[in-house]
Write a protein that binds this DNA or RNA. Structure first.
Length: 273
DNA sequence: AGTTAAACCTGGTTGC
DNA sequence: TGCAACCAGGTTTAAC
């Protein structure tokens, strides 16, 4: 469900309210991708410093050496901060009562995770974050560096974007949209992309993610922010989910294919090899 | 070493 | 209507 914009929208909804709040209770539902890694009662009484983000992971930092929680929303997860929680539903698998409300993870498919770690630099957080590329907002990610990173890779550019090994944050929707915006065929081998086109693609990734963030993310089925609001980006998608429709830019037909077991949507008319 | 399949789960939609 | 097949915003692990 959530790509970088949706995760960041979620973060912004909970960071302010949770700062300084204290954990009062913690309960779990069915198992998520990985176990919490700590007895839930251990965290009771801990104060929350804040919530940051790395790629599509959220990091909820506790005060005074109490570590933190690394949270991933998987494919179908969403976090909400509830003032009047009510009992957990069948898809609520993590609930943390705090003095600022109950933080609850709803995740039908259970690909998400909430994992305790002593610090971001310690296991298991360090291992989970170790393969992540640079943040799209990182000034160190220059067009030259991006182009150089594509040079050694023979995998199709769509798959490389999706992997997050070079730049994090673009999942299936935004990888398709950024490639369309940049006019690049998703099947093109990464190392065959010229420097000017790489620069254009990097810019497209950044603009696509920023635009989605400004619109509150995409709500295809069930994404909601921490206040239960829909995102609006999905209505701006040019290719994602639009198989058979006309391309808004060139009038071609949007096609769908499968790469690395994921659907890719693109316009064969204006996305060139 | 690098790239691609299989796996993890549930639920909604499509088609026979 | 019933049921099977396919599809879904992600990532790790195992296998070529």
């Amino acid at each position: 469900m959530p790509e970088l914009p949706e995760v960041e929208v979620t973060r912004r909804g909970i960071d302010g309210p949770l700062r300084g709040a204290r954990v009062q209770s913690l309960s779990l539902g069915k198992p998520l991708r990985w176990p919490l890694g700590i007895a839930p009662a251990t965290l009771e009484g801990a104060a929350i410093d804040g919530v940051s983000r790395r790629g599509k992971y959220l990091w909820l930092q506790f005060s005074e050496g109490a570590g933190g929680l690394l949270i991933h929303l998987g494919m179908s997860g969403s976090l909400s901060l509830l003032q009047e929680p009510g009992p957990p539903g069948p898809h609520d698998h993590f609930s943390m009562g705090t003095s600022a409300g109950t933080l609850r993870l709803t995740d039908p498919r259970r690909f998400g995770a909430v994992v305790w770690s002593a610090a971001l630099e310690h296991e298991p957080a360090a291992r989970l974050l170790s393969r992540l590329g640079l943040e799209p907002s990182d000034p160190a990610l220059t067009p030259g560096l991006f182009h150089a990173a594509l040079k050694g890779r023979r995998t199709p550019i769509k798959s490389l974007l999706l992997s997050g090994e070079v730049v994090v944050g673009a999942g299936n929707i935004y990888a398709c949209e950024a490639l369309h915006a940049a006019g690049i065929d998703p099947r093109l081998r990464s190392d065959r992309i010229s420097r000017p086109r790489a620069a254009r693609l990097l810019q497209a990734v950044r603009e696509t993610l920023e635009r989605a963030l400004a619109l509150g993310g995409s709500t295809l089925r069930d994404f909601r922010d921490a206040h239960g609001m829909d995102g609006e980006f999905q209505s701006e998608a040019r290719v994602y989910g639009r198989e058979g429709q006309d391309c808004a830019r060139c009038g071609g037909i949007v096609r769908r294919l499968v790469q690395a077991q994921r659907s890719t949507y693109f316009c064969a008319g204006c996305q060139r090899r």
